[in-house]
Amino acid sequence: MLRLLMLTIFIPYLSFGQQTKTTSNDNYTYPDSSWQLVTNIAKNGWNNDSLNKLRLFIIDSTNSTGVVVIQSGKILFEYGDTKETSYIASCRKSILSMLYGPFVEDGTIDLAASIEQLHIDDVGGLLPEEKKATIKNLLTARSGVYHAASNEGDASAMAPKRGSVEPGSFWLYNNWDFNVAGYILEQRTGKTIYQLIDSMFAKPLQMQDWNINEQRKTGDTTRSKYLAYHIWFSTRDMARIGYLMLRNGRWKDEQIIPADWIKKTTAVVSTRKQAVEEKTAYYHFGYGYLWWIWDEPYNKGAYQNAYSATGAYGQFITVLPKLDMVVAFKTKYDYGRQTSTDVYLKFLEKLVAARKQ
């Protein structure tokens, strides 16, 4: 038992899959059926002792059930059961942003279209001012529509009076926006979000644990007819999603998401300063198109151009371009566990600090 405990604490990474060959394209490395491991931690610029201490921090100070850190296309560090699928909470919204990309590029979706033009209405009716909101407003959480969402878990308690805000002028993290954006994508493409994930991501990325039959929508249709499109991923498949973003939408020889869309959606639309002034700020972040973006004064060093999907209870897909790194971090809520965002940010700080100077 002592030997097993020592192995758990002091081996920097353990892989749940066999080491298989990887594919390199344009000087980038991609996983095939499973991820390769970084075979020499120190040679690749990382401090072994610091990564061992990071493992102890995860055990002692978080409730994480899975962590995968990808460095230049290979696993640098992992913890927990990375193949177990569970609910990724609001990370679903960043996934939706990715799905939009090809359909904006080919003209299937016009971001300037208003919800009135799309014949969007809801329980009890929308106000004339609210119907002016565009798809872009929905994707950037600036719709000005403060109708109740079918599910909780947003900042709607801080919403201004309905009809008092011009669409596009005020940022508020609002599930109504996100759920309606999901509905519009399905209506414009003729496919469900889960079918799109299956064809656009699961197959080309060789996602190891995706199960379309596990996915389901939820919500109270007496509040709003637009349901929340909840998603179940494994940690190691979350890492594939993040790695697709890091590689600007390209996977091996296929451009799955337009690179321009990746750039557009991960740039700040609503600054952290604005959010502080509007009393809707969230930690170190500004907001783009359904992605949280490190913003002033935190977007320095390793966090330059960094962005993250985040979800309740401790779900994160973080992309750190300066380190050529992706971090997938999961906390399975079914186990009654939670990891707060401030604890996760401390985890990231310790991870970044493990890089040899």
Results as ranks from 00 to 15, higher is better:
residue 187 Q to G: 12
residue 50 S to G: 11
residue 99 L to V: 11
residue 26 D to W: 05
residue 332 K to C: 10
residue 329 F to L: 09
residue 42 A to F: 10
residue 76 L to I: 08
residue 43 K to M: 07
residue 137 N to K: 00
residue 304 Q to R: 07
residue 254 E to F: 05
residue 352 V to Q: 07
residue 134 T to F: 06
residue 111 L to N: 05
residue 242 G to L: 14
residue 308 S to R: 11
residue 99 L to T: 14
residue 109 I to R: 02
residue 335 Y to R: 11
residue 185 L to V: 03
residue 273 K to W: 10
residue 149 A to M: 04
residue 60 D to V: 07
residue 263 K to W: 03
residue 33 S to Y: 04
residue 237 D to L: 14
residue 46 W to M: 02
residue 183 Y to N: 09
residue 84 E to Q: 13
residue 241 I to Q: 04
residue 172 L to N: 03
residue 140 T to K: 00
residue 182 G to R: 02
residue 176 W to D: 11
residue 122 D to H: 07
residue 235 T to R: 00
residue 309 A to C: 13
residue 315 Q to C: 08
residue 209 D to C: 05
residue 332 K to E: 12
residue 357 Q to L: 13
residue 76 L to G: 11
residue 42 A to E: 13
residue 1 M to V: 12
residue 222 T to S: 06
residue 47 N to K: 08
residue 300 K to R: 01
residue 303 Y to G: 10
residue 117 Q to T: 06
residue 163 G to C: 09
residue 55 R to C: 09
residue 232 W to F: 15
residue 275 A to K: 00
residue 159 A to V: 09
residue 107 G to M: 09
residue 273 K to H: 06
residue 161 K to Q: 12
residue 157 A to E: 12
residue 32 D to S: 05
residue 61 S to W: 03
residue 302 A to E: 04
residue 8 T to K: 08
residue 49 D to S: 09
residue 89 A to G: 02
residue 185 L to P: 00
residue 66 G to M: 01
residue 195 Q to A: 15
residue 31 P to F: 14
residue 225 K to S: 07
residue 332 K to L: 14
residue 230 H to A: 08
residue 42 A to W: 04
residue 20 T to S: 15
residue 52 N to D: 14
residue 180 V to E: 03
residue 124 G to S: 12
residue 126 L to E: 13
residue 9 I to P: 04
residue 233 F to W: 04
residue 3 R to D: 09
residue 306 A to G: 10
residue 99 L to Y: 07
residue 168 G to P: 01
residue 318 T to W: 03
residue 334 D to M: 11
residue 187 Q to P: 04
residue 98 M to F: 02
residue 274 Q to C: 03
residue 108 T to W: 11
residue 60 D to Q: 14
residue 181 A to I: 02
residue 15 S to Y: 13
residue 133 A to L: 07
residue 319 V to C: 05
residue 127 L to V: 10
residue 247 R to A: 06
residue 41 I to Q: 01
residue 176 W to S: 07
residue 16 F to C: 09
residue 69 V to Y: 03
residue 101 G to R: 01
residue 341 T to M: 15
residue 141 A to E: 10
residue 290 L to R: 09
residue 26 D to A: 06
residue 251 W to T: 13
residue 320 L to K: 11
residue 57 F to V: 14
residue 276 V to Y: 11
residue 5 L to Y: 08
residue 147 H to L: 06
residue 50 S to H: 02
residue 36 Q to Y: 10
residue 21 K to Q: 14
residue 206 Q to G: 07
residue 305 N to I: 08
residue 330 K to H: 12
residue 284 H to R: 03
residue 18 Q to V: 15
residue 270 S to W: 08
residue 10 F to H: 13
residue 250 R to Y: 09
residue 239 A to D: 01
residue 230 H to T: 14
residue 206 Q to T: 15
residue 15 S to A: 10
residue 337 R to D: 15
residue 274 Q to D: 04
residue 119 H to F: 03
residue 289 Y to N: 02
residue 233 F to Q: 05
residue 350 K to E: 14
residue 339 T to E: 07
residue 94 S to Q: 06
residue 104 V to G: 10
residue 170 F to Q: 02
residue 210 W to D: 07
residue 259 A to T: 15
residue 149 A to W: 00
residue 122 D to W: 02
residue 309 A to Q: 10
residue 268 V to D: 04
residue 58 I to L: 12
residue 165 V to F: 00
residue 126 L to D: 10
residue 112 A to S: 11
residue 35 W to D: 05
residue 250 R to W: 06
residue 284 H to C: 10
residue 196 L to I: 03
